[in-house]
């Protein structure tokens, strides 16, 4: 489980999550993720390298998306072809609340609109 980020410019932040975001893993990244989403930037969260997404991890994503939205920004998810993660997001309905994209450029365009 790891979290890293890159500020592409003043309007776009990329947050890359990887590994196992089970309950324990989500707990470990929650604080840093919250700090990185307290911004009015467009934020794309890359989930293509995540191999397990728990309900707590989804809660972390929801909190982050709300935080970005409250500051006037947008947050989107990039899932690539990660079918395990796509199924988890679909089963909880989160893909209908947070814009979710298989294509990274589409995700970045969505938060910059």
């Amino acid at each position: 489980m790891a979290i890293r980020f890159e500020d592409v410019n003043e309007d776009l932040r990329r947050i890359v999550l990887s590994g196992r975001l089970d309950t324990a893993g989500s707990d470990e990244i929650a604080r840093q993720f919250a700090e990185l989403t307290q911004s009015a930037k467009g934020v794309v969260v890359y989930l293509s390298e995540v191999r397990f997404l728990s309900s707590m991890a989804i809660g972390v994503l929801i909190k982050g998306a709300k935080s970005v939205q409250a500051m006037g920004g947008r947050l989107a998810l990039h899932v690539a072809e990660n079918e395990v993660i796509i199924r988890t997001l679909e089963s909880t309905g989160i893909d209908g609340l947070i814009p979710t994209f298989r294509d990274a450029l589409d995700a970045e365009r969505a938060v910059l609109k």
Binding site: S55, I58, G59, G96
Partner: peptide, 22 residues
Amino acid sequence: PHPTSLADAMPGGLGLRLIRHC
């Protein structure tokens, strides 16, 4: 029903849904 907007979404309560789904 799933919440229809991010504003209505709560960070918790999804664990049982995942257990039932899986």
